[in-house]
């Protein structure tokens, strides 16, 4: 199969039963994509597929043929965090950090379509991402902060 990963072309040999999440982690080394529940609930494996957030544990690798995949590795890095990641850090929106990559993707997906979301809209947009540490309040604050910063440029 061929697809674009974070702007670069990728070629992988996969069997039909291979999940996209496994290709991303094992073949491509984009290990920001986490496997939590592995049944489409927790959202730790959330990525962008053709610009839309999806759960990569519920996508067959072959379904990504010719498509555009984006993971966290495509934007921020440890040295240079992007706006959403920076806000998550400042607002203490993570403890163990396992859910964070999926959270950040979902937050970005929300802010792309809705630059100034209400609390309710943020909660609704993040329903598909579970965090077992923070209790979500700080995640909410972080997304709000990121929204403010993105709006003020």
């Amino acid at each position: 199969m061929q697809f674009r990963l974070n702007g670069g072309d990728r070629k992988c040999k996969v069997s039909p039963r291979t999940l996209l999440v496994d290709v991303l982690r094992d073949e491509c080394g984009t290990t920001s994509v986490h496997i939590g529940c592995d049944e489409g609930i927790c959202g730790a494996c959330t990525i962008f597929l053709n610009g839309e957030s999806v759960k990569s544990c519920l996508v067959l690798a072959v379904q990504a043929e010719g498509k555009d995949v984006e993971t966290l590795e495509g934007t921020g890095s440890v040295k240079e965090l992007d706006v959403v990641q920076q806000a998550f850090g400042e607002e203490f929106a993570l403890q163990c950090g396992f859910c964070t990559p999926g959270m950040v993707v979902s937050a970005r997906a929300l802010l792309k379509n809705n630059p100034n979301p209400t609390d309710q809209e943020i909660r609704a947009a993040m329903v598909g991402n579970l965090c077992r540490c923070t209790g979500y309040q700080n995640i909410l604050k972080a997304v709000k902060k990121a929204a403010e910063r993105l709006q003020s440029g």
Binding site: G40, E52, S53, V54, K55, L58, L110, A125, G128, N129
Partner: peptide
């Protein structure tokens, strides 16, 4: 139905 990610697919 499900969540944003599920509804996107």
């Amino acid at each position: 139905i499900g969540d944003v990610q599920i509804r996107n697919r």
